[in-house]
């Protein structure tokens, strides 16, 4: 548990540093906040006053502390474009993103691990070769292209699923599969190689010499050992899903955090862009922490020795 605690401290530090980075990056990205909030006809005087009111004329570090103070007190402010409270936006869009991201994350492992196991057990069979070639293709295809392809095939041509929208099961299928695609492919390969490595290990030879059935060895010992590297990469998968969510949510019109963030950046809506960037960073960092905790649980060599 010591490792878990120290990892948690590390997580907090990463969050702090990334909050600074996000804050500065958005300030440095150029553009004018008044362009988003005020009509084009507003006078320069009025604009100046508006910047003053938002504190945009103060030194950046001061703005940072003011801003962090507001976030920690639970009131990160409002959107410049529609004056909605950011906390309300977080609840609403966060829920949507959680549904999409959670489904994709589930698909990555629920599809990836069984396919990887199948490929490892039927090594060099047509099933193995099919799965492996498909996963190579899946890793190479950029997901914005895959999204367009999916829309063209399943929505426009076949008409089986809607091309965009929210938030029913039917609308969820395409974006979730596209979002999970590369993760599935990576998990398949990881699972296959981890299973094969475990199957060729000395300890499996010992278990065979102990007269255990092949089925039992595979299901219990090989799989359990193979899970360790798979879990260790779960954190990377979370980061990948969060990153890809920006693209996939935008293409499929899924009103999640990613879509909100992309729109906010395009409109120079600082408070929204800043806040939601931080939220996504926090998600990735916390996800990694969770994955690391899982890794510690799965691997007895990392537990505290008795």
């Amino acid at each position: 548990m010591k490792r878990t605690a120290s990892r948690l401290a590390y997580t907090v530090i990463v969050l702090f540093v990334s909050s600074i980075a996000v804050f500065y990056a958005i300030r440095l990205s150029g553009g004018d906040a008044t362009a988003a909030a005020l009509p084009g006809s507003a006078t320069e005087e009025f604009r100046e006053e508006f910047r003053d009111r938002l504190g945009l004329n103060e030194p950046i570090y001061q703005q940072y502390f003011t801003y962090m103070g507001r976030i920690l007190s639970g009131d990160p402010g409002n959107s410049l474009t529609n004056n909605k409270a950011l906390t309300d936006m977080l609840t609403e869009h966060g829920r949507n993103s959680l549904i999409l991201g959670g489904t994709a994350f589930g698909l990555v492992f629920l599809v990836g691990i069984p396919l990887g196991i199948l490929a490892s057990l039927r090594r060099n069979s047509w099933a193995d070769q099919g799965i492996m070639s498909l996963s190579t293709v899946a890793m190479a295809v950029p997901n914005f292209w895959l999204a367009l392809l999916a829309v063209w095939l399943f929505a426009s041509t076949l008409g089986w699923l809607p091309s965009a929208g929210c938030c029913g099961t039917k609308q969820l299928i395409l974006p979730a599969v596209v979002l999970a695609f590369e993760g599935i492919a990576l998990t398949v390969r990881m699972t296959r190689s981890a299973m094969i490595e475990s199957q060729n290990s000395d300890y499996v030879r010992t278990l065979r010499a102990g007269g255990l059935s092949e089925w039992r060895i595979t299901c219990k010992h090989v799989l359990r050992n193979a899970l360790i590297p798979i879990i260790s990469l779960a954190g990377l998968r979370i980061g990948q899903i969060v990153g890809y969510a920006l693209i996939v949510e935008t293409i499929f019109g899924w009103p999640g955090l990613g879509q909100v963030l992309v729109n906010a950046v395009l409109r120079r809506d600082y408070p929204v862009a800043q806040f939601f960037s931080l939220v996504l960073v926090a998600l990735v960092v916390l996800g990694n922490w969770l994955a690391d905790t899982g890794y510690t649980i799965a691997n007895p060599r990392l537990r505290k020795s008795t």
Binding site: D202, Y203, A298
Partner: peptide
Amino acid sequence: SMIFQDPITSLDPVF
């Protein structure tokens, strides 16, 4: 029964 050369790698590490 059989005993192998390398006891370090011959026992399942997770059980």
